[in-house]
Design a protein around this nucleic acid. Structure first.
Lengths: 148, 148
DNA sequence: CCCAAAATCATCCATTCGGATGACGCGCGT
DNA sequence: ACGCGCGTCATCCGAATGGATGATTTTGGG
């Protein structure tokens, strides 16, 4: 912006100087003043238009149109509930895998522990959640914002 | 647009005429030509800028910014998937209750049928979904927008 | 009315899950 | 060093679940 104004002023100065230099050489006609004025008018009008266009070229009007997007809802774990329920990271991990539909055996293979260990974790987390089935645990886990 | 150009030309003509009328009356100074030129330059530059602004005033760039709205649970069942998978209403109902964390026995009591019937429905829906466990069926059901 | 789809119920059997319980090792803080 | 929380693994057993299959009844549309 400031650069534009400076450039504009500079061009104007050069032009005026140029006109002063040449006005006595070949503008010695009858209506030299009119021609001179017309020239100046045309040039400055052009420059003005250019400047005006320049000034507004990038002023986009941002129209915010709210669109209902399926919204994957950036999940944030309710750590306070995790803490208050005393659920350990490993238990939470197992709960997530249960929610993903994996069997105990698949979970065991996934996290490199025995199936018995997975059973222990799941039993503990069921107990802490007050769930009697894994589907219920999943439901409660989602409701309590422990898992996405 | 065309109106702007016409108006611009008209103003220019009037201005030039006015200048011609007054130039011999009180612009009889030493540097009258420079003053005259500067005046014309300033006026036409102003007009040019104004015109330039005019020309681009209404060229708004519409930027659609998708805003993630809290997305209330405006759940809409994907009936096309239900149909394409050939899932019956009863099967869908059972799937929902499974997702709610109920056992087969509880579902049976809830919908007044025998546990065997619930087992049949669940088995069929598992088969249609390609699920091997109820947790997996729930996961798939949610993913396919069959259940909330 | 008739038929196909849907819903219902059942039995048998294998697998999975859940509950209860005990044990061992590791890291951490007192 | 000791206790504690956490993670690990195990065994036993009953309940729940899943798979396969067959049968009967209800229902909705042509």
């Amino acid at each position: 912006m400031r650069r534009h104004v400076l450039l504009y002023g500079l061009l104007a100065g050069v032009l005026i100087a140029a006109l002063r230099l040449i006005e006595y050489r070949w503008l010695v006609l009858e209506h030299s003043v009119e021609i001179y004025g017309g020239l100046v008018a045309a040039v400055f009008a052009t420059l003005g238009i250019w400047l005006g266009l320049r000034l507004t070229r990038h002023t986009e009007t941002v129209v915010v149109r709210e669109v209902e997007v399926p919204a994957p809802v950036n999940f944030v774990r309710d750590q306070s509930k995790v803490d208050s329920l005393g659920i350990t990271p490993r238990e939470l991990e197992v709960l997530e895998l249960i929610a993903a539909g994996l069997s105990n055996k698949e979970i065991a293979e996934r996290v490199y522990v025995s199936e018995n260990t997975v059973k222990t974790h799941s039993s503990r987390v069921f107990d802490k959640l007050g769930a009697r089935r894994r589907t219920q645990a999943v439901q409660l886990g989602k409701e309590l914002r422990l898992i996405p």
